[in-house]
Structure formats: structure tokens, C-alpha cells
Design a protein around this nucleic acid. Structure first.
Length: 625
DNA sequence: ACGGTTGGTACA
DNA sequence: TTGTACCAA
């Protein structure tokens, strides 16, 4: 539960952007004849037509739901178009959606501090941009005519004179005597409408958005009017909104905590929460959660937009339902190998594109014992330092599994570990990589060792050659995603980046792009500074000149990951460098080890000795004290 | 014992 | 720190 911060008096302007049935849109862009048809994306299709994971709005009108199987969907909507998620290595492969999500993030990030909340959701802190707009071009003077802005939904706004709805919204946006915070919200709405149009223009994807004074209200609002619409939450509407809102609608309260509030305290709506003193809530749910609940009831939430464009971990997993549960050690090994191959590939993409290395490998499994009475225990997750290369990861993952299985089965039953099954079943396996550290100055052309698989390695090297090294493509891509680069800062991409071109593009452009209101005041997100430092370039991007010059396509982005700005590297590096353990460096692809070591300060060796310095120590049975 | 897969956070 | 649990979509 996020820590509440009531002291921050929420006069920020926050937006939550939510892609509309995102996977469907990705498939419809790829297959344009699907546009306008009832469509769903299904994962696998062997069993009952596969599981729906995204449903178009046309299909929803037939009652098609995300929880359905493909066959059920066909029953209620016979003409529904079912598109399958790509499969690689016997499992669902979501890379195309990751890539598409990154396209969107890279556009939204131009507006201000940006947090990638999921593959298809983003938070934006538009406070600075809104304040700048209000100061320099307030809506009350430069009346917005933009249709997308006027289609906004303003919670609590009534249309008493029965005039045209858009005219009604325009009047609200332009009120001279409005509260300062309402004026900022109006600016936020204009900014969000414009950036949503830009997303549509550059990606062909629609999205919906909520604009409010904090994250939780923005999130709440973003799904109130879908698809392709935006909703504003003025301060004056908050109480009326929350009073009758079912408690489960609030983010974080859709699960057990929400149920507990309902059953234990009789709280049905957020408004019902208001009766309870903070102390009471703390007694029931702990200090942090109690305070958080007390604030949420009042529409207060101080969580900041994180300023993070990239995921904090990578995972690859698969479930083995019912009869497909794994019974043999060999089958577990097989699937771990597949999962590790995918993970390894994604880690190398991250290294390539973002210069990030990963430090920890974790194995999760779900299991049950058919005969055993001791059904409570979960299969324990296990982790160890991550060694790059598919073969090493496979070896380590299998060892982690073995360690977990021993613990899961208990000491008496260890003889059952042989390849014969002795009652245990594995219904889920996943490997994940976490503790990602950004590293500077890895030359982008280094041929990285991919691991053992020749085919994979070959494919990798070829993409590296064309995409990462010399090609025009790559430098163009850098230009889209990077801001100005700090000179002298381990300048890797300055080599092949056409700086001159930027300057040449400084010509005068359309007069009133709102993106010019982005300001550099927030030190916590360096990318904002960069964009502010390059106003002309930002304007270029926002006015579609870049688009005209070279449209963004799916193939422009390698593997579902955005590229970090250089100064983000610098900032992260400056305080994370000391944390890199030399034993981790040992496990990097040999070619970059030296590179990384050069950047390490006079070693501060610390915490490798706990388990011993050998990887093998991580797989021994955990000893009791 | 099946919406799957992928991700995030809080806490002990 | 590691491992668990919960949450979301």
C-alpha cells in the first residue's frame, strides 16, 4: 500500500492515460480490415477457443467479456474476429505489445514527467506544463477550439441553459473567475487532448484519459468515458463522486482489502469510509494502510508520478493447467529452458537498447501434491545472482527449481527428486530478472555473446548489425527518443547521431503548439529538462514534422523497450554505481565486463560473502541457524 | 484445478 | 535481503 502523503496539498495536475483495448488495437493496426469489426485477442486456442485477453468495444456491445473463452465469445457474437497472440517457444509472446506500448510512452513522455504504469497505461505529471500555459496563454484568452478538448467530460458540470455540450465545456474551460486549480485543470485537459491526438497521429492508437489533482483520481477518471475520450475531475466534484462510489472501484481496493472493508466495517462506498477516524482504520489495517484509507476517502493521495519509462523487471512464465500439469523433472527442465531463452533474449534487448544490466534471477513455481495431506504450503520462490547467457540461466533456473522442490517436498521425501513423479505436479513456472542497473558508455556496436544457441545468436548478431550499429535507422530512432546529450558523458551515441540535423530543423513552425509550455523546473525527472532545453525540437516533434519526415513504424523499435535519455543514465549511474557488485560484473557478457569495470570506482566489495562467493552456494538447501 | 502473463508494491 | 502476499489488467 502506498504511503499517504497528506501534506502535499494536491494542486498538481496529473493525468492517467489508458489505451483502449490495447492488444486489439495493435492487431487492428497490423490487419486494418479488422477495424470496426467486433474483435478479440485470444491466447492459445486449443482449449475452448483460447482465453480472451482483450475485447474491442464493438464486441463488448454483444456482451463479450474478457473472462470468456473463444467459444463462449462466438456464442454471443458469432461474427467476432478472434486474433491469436503470437506464440514463440511454445508460449505466448507479448513482445509486439511491449513494443507498441513503448511507442506510446515515447510520445506521452514529451509532455512532462511520465511513469509507465503498465504495458498500456501511463501517468503524467503535467503541473509544470499546465502552469506555464496558464501563465503564458491561458484558455480564457486563447480560447480552445480544439474539438478533442471540447469533447472532454467535466465531472460535476451541468448544462443549465441547455446549450451545445461542447460550448458548455468551452465556457467551463475559459471561465475567468474560476478557481486557480480549475484553471490548471483546464490547461491539463487541453494538453492531454493534444497529446492524445498526437498519439493517434503517430501510432494510430486511441486512448482515454483522466485529468485530476492526483494519481488515484486521474486513474479513476480515465476509465469513466471510453473509448477515446477524456474526463476531468474538478476539486468541487470529488466529494459527490466518491460518496456513492462502490469501494471496489478504487484502485487497490478491488481485492481482499476492499472485501474486508465491506465485510468487517460495513463499508460499501468510499463515502462510507468518512465516518471512521484515522486511528480506527489504523487499528484494523496498520498505520500506513489506515492513513492511506483515511486520505483516499477524502480524495487525497500524494503519490508522485515516478518518472520511469522502462520496466523494473522482466519475466517469462507459463502456466500448465489441469491435465497439462508437469509431472517429470525432464518436462520442467524443458520448459525452464524455453522460459530462460525468452528471458535471455529480452535481457539482451534491454542491454542493447537501454544499457541496463540485471542482477537477480528469480524462479517462481506453483505446484500441488496430489496425494499429500500437507496441501497448505506454496512452492517457495528462489533467487540467485543472474548470469548472462541462456545456458547459464537455464542451469541456474533448474538448480533453483531443485532447491525449491526439495523445500517444498520436505526433507523426508528427497528421494522422490528423481525423474519419476512422486505426487508432485507443477502448474506454473516463471523466471524473472530484477534489480536492473543502468550502465553508461557501452559502445552500441559491441557484439554481445548471446549464449549457446547458434540460431539465436546468428539472428541476434544480424539484428545487431543492422539496427544497433551503423544503420541510419538506429540514429533516427535515437533522435526520436533521446533528448540532448550531455557532452563528455560517456558519449556513445553522439558518434552516429546527426546533431546538425536538429539545428537545421529549427525553422519556424505552427504558432500554437501547447508543447511549448513544458518547463524545466522539476529536478526529479531529467527528461523534462532535456525536452525543455530543446524546445524547438520538441515543437518539431509535436507538430508532426518528424512524422512527415519519417513515420514511426513498429519495426522502428526493437523489442518493446524504450530507450533512455542519456541524462537519465547519468543520474541513475551516479548513485547506483556503488551498488554494483563485482561478482555480478563477472557474470556479464565478457565483452562488456571491462567496460563496466572501468566505470566502477575503487571497488567497494560488500555483500557477496553471505552465501559464499560461488553461484553454487545459492542452490544448497537453506540451512537453519 | 485454469481468464494467462506480466508487472508492481508492501511487509516481515 | 530474500521471500511472501497482494493487486491490476
Amino acid at each position: 500500500m502506498p504511503v499517504a502523503r497528506p501534506e502535499s496539498s494536491d494542486s498538481r495536475i496529473i493525468a492517467h492515460v489508458d489505451m483502449d483495448c490495447f492488444y486489439v488495437q495493435v492487431e487492428q493496426r497490423k490487419l486494418p480490415y479488422l477495424r470496426g469489426l467486433p474483435t478479440a485477442v485470444v491466447q492459445y486456442n486449443e482449449w475452448k477457443g483460447g482465453a480472451l485477453i482483450a475485447v474491442s468495444y464493438e464486441a463488448r456491445t454483444y456482451g463479450v467479456k474478457r473472462s470468456m473463452r473463444g467459444h463462449e465469445a462466438k456464442e454471443v457474437c458469432p461474427e467476432i474476429q478472434l486474433v491469436q497472440v503470437p506464440v514463440a517457444r511454445g508460449k505466448a509472446d507479448l513482445n509486439t505489445y511491449r513494443t507498441a506500448g513503448s511507442e506510446v510512452v515515447s510520445i506521452l513522455a514529451r509532455t512532462g514527467r511520465c511513469e509507465r504504469a503498465s504495458i498500456d497505461e501511463v501517468y503524467l505529471d503535467l503541473t509544470d506544463a499546465a502552469e506555464k500555459m496558464l501563465a503564458e496563454a491561458p484558455p480564457e484568452i486563447f480560447e480552445p477550439v480544439d474539438d478533442e478538448t471540447l469533447k472532454s467530460h467535466i465531472l460535476g458540470l451541468t448544462n443549465e441553459r441547455g446549450i451545445d455540450d461542447k460550448e458548455n465545456v468551452r465556457e467551463w474551460l475559459c471561465r475567468k473567475n474560476a478557481d486557480h486549480r480549475d484553471k490548471l485543470l483546464a490547461c491539463g485537459a487541453i494538453i492531454v487532448a493534444e497529446v492524445r491526438m498526437q498519439v493517434l497521429k503517430e501510432t494510430k492508437f486511441t486512448c482515454s484519459a483522466g485529468i485530476a489533482h492526483n494519481k488515484i483520481l486521474a486513474k479513476l477518471a480515465s476509465c469513466m468515458n471510453k473509448p477515446a475520450q477524456q474526463t476531468v475531475v474538478p476539486l468541487s466534484s470529488v466529494k459527490g463522486l466518491l460518496d456513492s462510489l462502490p469501494i471496489k472501484k478504487m484502485k487497490q481496493l478491488g481485492g481482499k482489502l476492499g472485501s474486508s472493508l465491506q465485510s468487517d466495517l460495513g463499508v460499501k462506498t468510499v463515502g462510507d469510509l468518512l465516518q471512521f477516524p484515522e486511528e480506527k482504520l489504523q487499528e484494523h489495517y496498520g498505520v500506513n494502510t489506515g492513513t492511506w484509507l483515511w486520505n483516499i476517502a477524502r480524495g487525497v493521495s500524494g503519490e508522485e508520478v515516478q518518472g520511469r519509462l522502462l520496466p523494473k523487471s522482466h519475466g517469462s512464465g507459463k502456466s500448465f493447467a489441469g491435465p497439462r500439469a508437469l509431472k517429470t523433472f525432464a518436462s520442467v527442465e524443458h520448459w525452464l529452458n524455453e522460459l530462460c531463452e525468452e528471458l535471455n533474449e529480452r535481457l539482451h534487448s534491454d542491454l542493447d537498447q537501454n544499457k541496463r544490466i540485471v542482477r537477480t534471477l528469480t524462479l517462481h513455481a506453483t505446484a500441488y501434491k496430489s496425494c499429500d495431506s500437507d496441501a497448505q504450503k506454496n512452492f517457495p520462490s528462489k533467487s540467485c545472482p543472474l548470469r548472462y547467457g541462456a545456458a547459464k540461466m537455464q542451469e541456474d533456473a533448474l538448480n533453483l527449481f531443485q532447491a525449491g522442490l526439495r523445500e517444498y517436498l520436505g526433507t523426508y521425501n528427497t528421494r522422490a527428486l528423481g525423474s519419476q513423479n512422486n505426487g508432485w505436479r507443477i502448474t506454473g513456472l516463471s523466471v524473472s530478472a530484477s534489480k536492473i542497473v543502468e550502465i553508461p558508455s557501452i559502445p552500441c556496436c559491441l557484439p554481445l555473446d548471446r549464449g549457446q544457441d547458434d540460431i539465436t545468436q546468428e539472428a541476434y548478431l544480424s539484428t545487431l548489425g543492422t539496427e544497433s550499429c551503423s544503420g541510419i535507422n538506429k540514429s533516427e530512432e535515437h533522435e526520436v527518443f533521446h533528448g540532448e546529450e550531455t557532452t563528455g558523458q560517456c558519449g556513445m551515441s553522439s558518434l552516429n547521431r546527426p546533431e546538425q540535423k536538429r539545428k537545421a530543423m529549427k525553422e519556424k513552425l505552427g504558432t500554437r503548439s501547447i508543447l511549448k509550455f513544458f518547463k524545466k523546473t522539476d529536478p526529479s525527472c531529467s527528461s523534462i529538462k532535456e525536452h525543455a532545453d530543446n524546445l524547438q525540437n520538441v515543437e518539431l516533434a509535436s507538430t508532426g514534422v518528424r512524422l512527415t519526415e519519417r513515420p514511426i513504424e513498429v519495426s522502428d523499435i526493437n523489442n518493446g523497450q524504450c530507450t533512455l535519455t542519456q541524462s537519465e543514465h547519468k543520474e541513475a549511474w551516479s548513485y547506483k554505481i556503488d551498488e554494483i557488485d563485482s561478482s555480478v560484473v563477472d557474470e556479464l557478457p565478457p565483452e562488456i565486463q571491462e567496460e563496466v569495470r572501468l566505470c566502477l570506482r575503487p571497488q567497494k566489495r560488500s555483500n557477496i560473502a553471505k552465501r559464499g562467493s560461488s553461484i553454487a552456494d545459492y542452490f544448497l538447501p537453506t540451512r537453519k541457524t
